[in-house]
């Protein structure tokens, strides 16, 4: 299983570590080299420094070989563009994008993209907890 994770923030680094521990081949992409400091010794994958909205960077991360691509940078539009590029241009089977704006998430979900909105997820969880 080969996973490419775009964005190595709190979410991306955690995802990368878990996937790496789970025995997957993992490549993390971030435009800021310092972002990789969040990765612990448990991460054993590759790091690619570069702007993911540049297709050359995606290619150097071997995105066309990926089984899963998770676009989780802090920029919604970059996530959406990368996710769509992965799906339509590089033919990746499973593509996930993080979108912070629930309204935007809804629009892209209708376009058939697998979109995760942290606010919606958290709201659902907290709501369920309150109703319990």
């Amino acid at each position: 299983m080969f996973v490419v994770i775009i964005g190595c923030g709190r979410l991306g680094s955690r995802l990368a570590i878990e996937a790496s521990k789970g025995g997957m081949n993992v490549v993390v992409v971030d435009k800021n080299k310092r972002a990789f400091d969040l990765l612990t010794a448990e991460f054993s994958g590759f790091q690619v420094v570069g702007d993911a909205s540049n297709q050359e960077v995606l290619r150097s991360a071997k995105i066309s070989d990926a089984d899963i691509v998770a676009a989780v940078t802090d920029n919604d539009n970059v996530n959406l563009m990368v996710a769509q590029a992965a799906k339509h241009l590089f033919g990746v089977g499973k593509v996930l994008a993080r979108v912070t704006d629930p309204l935007k998430a809804e629009i892209y979900a209708q376009l058939g993209l697998k979109v995760l909105c942290p606010a919606t997820v958290a709201a659902d969880a907290i709501g369920a907890e309150m109703l319990k």
């Binding site: 080969f2 790496s20 025995g23 997957m24 081949n25 993992v26 490549v27 010794a41 448990e42 991460f43 054993s44 994958g45 590759f46």
Partner: peptide
């Protein structure tokens, strides 16, 4: 794993795991 790998003088990995 990565610590052990590098500690034995392997600086390059073949695959991203």
């Amino acid at each position: 794993a990565r610590g052990l790998y590098q500690a034995e003088g392997r600086t390059e990995q073949l695959l991203p795991n």
